[in-house]
Design a binder for these strands. Structure first.
Length: 732
DNA sequence: AGCACGCCGACT
DNA sequence: GTCGGCGTGCTC
């Protein structure tokens, strides 16, 4: 692997340096450089901040904003490679584009401050100079293990030899074993790009060749790899990974956190012989530090990670892949509100390297970039192997409503019975936790609401309580109406997964029915157990929320039922239709992926809706065309730009007054308008009042710049917070 | 984000 | 008379 020039060629800094700290301080701070300290931009340092010592990154020469006499001295420099210039530029770009504090963006890159310290070595034992005084079978087995001259950790030796730690202690005391230090985490193994992977179909091979060709030619730019579920996109882009590896470059594969499955890692290992380096929230702190160093030193050839992996200090990045690029999980909704796909496009641009966006249902933004020729397009038309797309059937709930108080229509219930009768499996999908989303008093009409939020409390029957899904508030399920005190007057309204479970058990009393929902499953192991039981056929019908829609393969699953396909189509979210299409095609794609053909039943009140029509016909192009026309007419993304400004605080009057003041000073014009203030969809959340302004602009308007100058001209009271969401995805 | 300083209630 | 609640404000 080649060492990159990076910033190490930058001239050493003298006198004063500007240091970016991973805290919301608004800007980088100036510090004095000790005479004997050699520093370049990107170096990792410790500096005093108030009473404590904090980590930071040299961002450049001093800015002179603070008098030299008031500057504190940089305490020390860490012996790690400087942060590459391209990563520093990316951090600046994200901060500027999202109006986030640059220090908080830096924090995305420094997940734990102690990351810079070299990993602590661990004690290990190798063969020592002496022979044992007395030979025993246990000792002989240990000597066998260390005969190769390598050092092993005591626990490993003891376990592999089947002896107790005491044996090792005794041998070490006699000098038969010698203690030494080894790195706690060895360098990651090199993926073998020459290794033969699974054989590719003609379509796959053609697509793989196109992608690999661009990488070998060193062509920068974005390519959309589009292919329906099961068309083998992963194996295709693995060939692009192989091409980048053959040139000695590092590769980053970004996945939505939930798609980072063992299955994916094993497919990678099948192609490249080793597992990739992982970067996501489940990686423990020690392993995390080791992985960070492996990346920074250029020893991690391929990193697979969730969105924060984009901020790793690759010195030699040659290719980025964003898989499931349409997935809303790439949009971070707190602290730094950024879209990892868009930031990935920017990093690839800064690095002058290719980027591949992969999806079965690419976002309209990406489709539009392909249409105007900014992105290249590689299409995989066929499903690989024998699997076929399921037959999708719309069930019009106006024509065939379920019986009163139930939620599975006649045709779906019938299909479920048939399917399990044939020894096949059913997946029911409903993106609503709990038993019922609303509890209503049949006498006075009272609806049980959350005291902290403007939302209804959701009944969770198994826990016998009512819970707020926004702030976590919960109370015992009352036996009488809290408002009129009538007894036995409270009725559950609408379906949650628990209620569908109850209905399914009544429908198929002698079958195994299970629930997969985040409030039933608390550990990754419990989740794996249910997935295994379903894969092995121990469960006939699985009922789940969002989680089951992603990344799993159930060969004997032949029926998918979507209990409420209309969820998400209402509300002021411009991407609601697109998301519903993505979700439904994804969940439908779970059916019949192996030898048996699958069916998907979508229950809907709006069968004539273009989303439903496009789903039923399987004609994605038709859906995209309809949706594009609508967005263009409304000037919505990708044809226009949006920014949400959320004003929140504990005092309703303060919040409203601030929002109204902002509305008065808002920029307005022919190509730019500000709507609101309107109560945010959840106008009371966790005890905070929330009001939203929405800036709507033409495509060519620099929205971050407009918002920045608008907000900076406004005094914001201390107890009021103003949050900016450029290109909003969530309208909660 | 931390961590100080700062001004009002129940205790040795 | 003190210990301590967390509101406001600063950190080069």
């Amino acid at each position: 692997m080649t060492e990159s020039a990076g910033s190490s060629l930058d001239a050493p800094l003298r006198g004063e340096a500007s240091v970016l700290l991973p805290y919301p301080l608004g800007r980088a701070f100036d510090y004095a450089i000790p005479e004997d300290m050699d520093l370049v931009a990107g170096d990792h340092v410790a500096v005093p901040l108030g009473p404590r010592l904090v980590p930071g990154i040299i961002w450049g020469p001093g800015t002179g904003t603070v008098a030299a006499s008031r500057l504190k001295m940089i305490d020390r420099r860490y012996p790690v490679p400087p942060m590459p210039a391209n990563l520093r530029k990316l951090i600046d770009w994200v901060a500027s584009y999202t109006l986030a504090d640059p220090g908080l963006v830096l924090k995305l890159s420094l997940r734990s401050p102690e990351t810079f310290e070299p990993p602590a070595p661990v004690t290990a034992y190798q063969r020592g100079p002496h022979d044992p005084v007395k030979m025993t079978p246990a000792r002989a087995r240990i000597l066998d293990l260390v005969a190769d001259g390598l050092a092993y950790r005591a626990a490993d030796l003891a376990e592999r030899a089947g002896v107790s730690a005491g044996v090792i202690k005794a041998l070490a005391a006699q000098g038969v074993l010698a203690a030494t230090n080894i790195p706690a985490f060895p360098r990651p193994a090199e993926p073998d790009w020459r290794r033969r992977g699974p054989s590719l179909s003609a379509d796959q091979a053609g697509a793989a060749q196109q992608l690999a060709g661009r990488i070998l030619a060193g062509t920068a730019g974005v390519t959309l790899l589009e292919g329906v579920t099961g068309s083998g996109k992963t194996e295709v882009y693995f060939e692009a990974v192989a091409a980048a590896l053959s040139k000695g470059r590092q590769v980053l594969i970004l996945l939505p956190e939930i798609a980072l499955t063992v299955q994916f890692l094993e497919r990678f290992a099948e192609r490249f012989g080793v597992r990739p380096v992982e970067w996501h929230s489940d990686v423990g702190p020690a392993r995390r530090r080791a992985n960070w160093r492996a990346v920074a030193e250029g020893h991690a050839a391929v990193v697979v990670g969730a969105r924060s992996a984009l901020f790793l200090p690759f010195p030699n990045l040659g290719l980025i892949i964003v898989d499931e690029e349409h997935d809303a999980a790439f949009k971070q909704e707190d602290l730094v509100i950024y879209h990892a796909r868009d930031a990935a496009v920017m990093r690839a641009h800064l690095e002058k390297i290719p980027l591949i966006l992969a999806s079965a249902t690419p976002s309209l933004e990406t489709v539009w970039n392909v249409k105007r020729g900014r992105y290249a397009h590689v299409h995989l038309p066929e499903r690989h192997g024998v699997a076929e797309l399921p037959e999708i059937r719309l069930i019009d709930l106006k024509q065939q409503p379920p019986p009163r108080g139930r939620f599975l229509s006649g045709p779906l219930a019938e299909a479920m019975a048939q399917t399990v009768e044939a020894g096949e499996q059913v997946l029911l999908f409903l993106n609503r936790r709990g038993y019922a989303p609303l509890t209503l008093c049949r006498v006075c009409g009272h609806r049980v609401k959350c005291p902290n939020c403007s939302s209804w409390l959701v009944e969770h029957r198994f826990q016998r309580r009512l819970t707020c899904h926004h702030c976590g508030h919960h109370e015992r399920a009352p036996s009488q109406c809290p408002s009129c005190q009538a007894a036995d007057s409270l009725v559950p309204c609408g379906p949650g997964v628990e209620r569908v479970l109850e209905e399914t058990k009544a429908l198929l009393p002698d079958r195994n029915v299970a629930l997969f929902s985040s409030d039933q499953i608390f550990t990754p192991q419990a989740a794996r157990d249910i997935i295994d039981d379903f894969t092995n056929g121990k469960i006939d019908v699985l009922i789940g929320t969002q989680v089951v829609a992603k990344g799993h393969h159930f060969p004997n699953l032949t029926l998918v039922g979507v209990v409420d396909a209309d969820l998400g189509l209402s509300g002021g979210d411009p991407r609601a239709a697109e998301r519903t299409y993505q979700l439904l095609s994804q969940v439908s794609g779970r059916a019949g992926r192996a030898e048996r053909p699958g069916r998907a039943f979508l229950q809907t009140w709006l069968p004539e809706h273009p989303v439903m029509q496009a789903l039923a016909s399987g004609d994605r192009a038709q859906f995209v065309a309809v949706e594009e026309r609508q967005r263009e007419a409304d000037g919505l993304p990708p044809f226009g730009r949006l920014a949400a400004i959320i004003v929140s605080g504990p005092d309703e009057t303060d919040v409203n007054r601030t929002a109204q003041a902002l509305a008065r000073t808002a920029p307005r014009g022919e190509r730019l308008d500000v709507l609101g203030p309107a109560p945010a969809p959840l106008s009371l959340l966790r005890g905070q009042y929330r009001v939203r302004l929405l800036l709507h602009a033409a495509r060519d308007i620099n929205v971050p710049a407009q918002v920045r100058s608008w907000l900076s001209a406004q005094e914001i009271p201390a107890k009021v917070r103003v949050t900016v969401d450029i290109d909003p995805y969530s309208f909660f």
